[in-house]
Design a protein around this nucleic acid. Structure first.
Lengths: 327, 327
DNA sequence: GCTTGCGTTGGAAACGTTTCGGACACAGGG
DNA sequence: CCCTGTGTCCGAAACGTTTCCAACGCAAGC
């Protein structure tokens, strides 16, 4: 920038003003500066810019688990788009469902002076974020120890919707397979129980399966065991898209097909031998809202009390949830 | 850091030395400094750190298209892991297949002083990167106008593998559906032609379909048209996983099922009514290698001439590529 | 006792930007 | 002619590190 100032024969401050909006500079001067910029191929050093007090870098951080999971990938893409429109970059921190690693990654990101944090939190205390002076939005799950914006889907409502749907089809033995994910699956289970209570039907606790892992493999194994019981369920509620995959894998070897409802839509769901009925929300919207909220917070445009935004879930009937109860 | 120095009663340089490795500091002094750091909750300001001359920030940039595409998501995840192990963050730049937008995003990223760039390039000239003084690795595709490391898969070999497989099954009318992606699909087409030539079979050019878009929808439409021809193909080669999806969608309404081979594996491929045969490479490895290479370049550990690494493709037979030729 | 060298420490300079107080020129009003 | 206000511009200070050189204390060697 100093070189530009010299080349244009102007002062340092003038160049800076031209680079940013350029108010208070005569057009003649400004164009001379612009010419020098072009000629020298000058580019503002964002790092030095972010060094100034009060200025945060124009980057948002996004901390989430597995990008391979289309659910998270969709959030990331949507957030990226929204941030990009405002000229913000997105720094990714990935964590493999490990509270300590998550904390370290977040500290790292804060050290990079990001303007805001979008976090898909694991369980554990997040109060250490309170003093960081950076706006935070939690995505998909709430966090303990800090008052911050939260954008989630209506997990309980979705769980109830899925279960009610199966109950309406006449199913009375409905299993639920729960990935060991913080918060979300617990809520889905609650919806499952509430639907049963609403229908006046007791839950057979042996049909509530807590998986040791959130993988398709774990779900496959558990489903196989479920279906080999003397009195197997006639309906299955898979709490996650990976779980749904495992369930469907296991069911390929089963004679009497139970009804299946998944949570969160996934690619090819409608292409499977029996198209898969799911309960789903607008995942991209989740990411968009979170990013927009964070940008508004970061710019100071939004100073309201922390918001809690809950996106609805809808039932998408495709077939697997509508197979009849076999005698 | 000044506060820490004061609190510990030491000089500024000493604190800096302790924070980084801490060689040349007496243990007694160092521990006093560490105590002060803990007490004040000090955290190094990475931005200021990156400001020093020669120092780049400890972030890599990753510029790619659609995170929703599992192929890119897998690369991103793998790169994230490798970078994370070295304490590097990853800044994401997403581009929607738009050369100008790509250039702008990359310039942005360079302004952020990233230590290196991983780029899935679009067509167009990338010579402007040559003077940026930042190491660059191109992923999945080469780029024009600059000598840099490239990590790709063997697109031509994969295309030939897929086509040869269909030819071996006795297919003689094999269609290829090409997404309009820069470089990759062109190579796959070359493999397709080479396989035909090797078998001494002429290519019916009406079976070489350039899709207007790389979406499943476009592929679905094109497939439908193909199969309604008076002399439809008996084998289909889908150049992309999204294309494969569209092909399969269209084929649901077709009586005489042709054989289908896809390029790049995808989730649920083995769960479809006819499990899908694909040609695939180790996508995660692609991301890992690229990130590792870039880190080595950035640290100066690797000063060899630009590398060109090509990952092999393997045929995964699942059924759809092995359906017999109907009379 | 003086010199030499080493291990340790202190602190100024530099990085590239933004910002802020002030300077300068010029016009207009008194 | 002086004063004031306005529009434009200059350049020093500040941001929080790292790095380099100087300085200091101390032990060993002469």
């Amino acid at each position: 920038m100093i070189d530009v100032a010299k080349a244009a024969g102007v002062g340092l401050g003038t160049v800076s003003r031209v680079v940013n909006g350029g108010a208070g500079v005569r057009e003649q001067t400004a164009s001379r500066v612009r010419a020098a910029i072009d000629q020298l191929g000058f580019q503002r050093n964002e790092v030095a810019r972010a060094l100034r007090p009060g200025k945060k870098s124009s980057s948002l951080a996004l901390v989430l688990g597995d990008l391979t999971n289309p659910f998270y990938a969709t959030i990331a893409k949507a957030a990226l788009e929204v941030a990009g429109q405002d000229g913000f970059a997105v720094v990714l921190g990935s964590v493999d469902e490990d509270p300590e690693g998550e904390r370290r990654a977040i500290q790292e990101l804060i050290g990079r002076q990001v303007a805001g944090l979008m976090i898909v939190p694991d369980q554990g205390d997040h109060s250490y974020l309170a003093g960081a002076g950076v706006p935070v939005v939690f995505v998909d799950r709430p966090a303990h120890g800090i008052e911050a914006d939260i954008v989630t889907v209506d997990n309980e409502g979705g769980g109830r919707l899925a279960t009610e749907h199966l109950l309406e089809q006449g199913h009375r033995r409905i299993a639920i397979l729960l990935a060991p994910s913080y918060h979300t699956t617990g809520r889905r289970l609650r919806g499952y129980r509430r639907a049963h209570r609403g229908a006046g039907i007791a839950v057979d606790e042996s049909l509530v399966v807590q998986l040791p892992e959130g993988t398709a493999e774990a779900a496959e194994k558990a489903t196989r065991e479920l279906m080999h019981k003397p009195d197997p369920p006639t309906g299955l509620f898979a709490s996650t898209n990976f779980v749904a995959e495992g369930v469907l894998r296991a069911l390929r070897e089963v004679d009497r097909q139970p009804a299946v409802v998944g949570f969160d839509d996934f690619r090819m769901a409608d292409m499977l031998p029996t198209p898969v009925t799911v309960v789903a929300s607008d995942t991209a919207e989740l990411g968009r809202i979170a990013a927009r909220l964070l940008l508004d917070r970061a710019s100071g445009a939004d100073t309201r009390a922390p918001q809690r935004i809950v996106l609805p879930c809808a039932l998408i009937q495709r077939g697997s949830g509508e197979v009849p109860v076999l005698p």
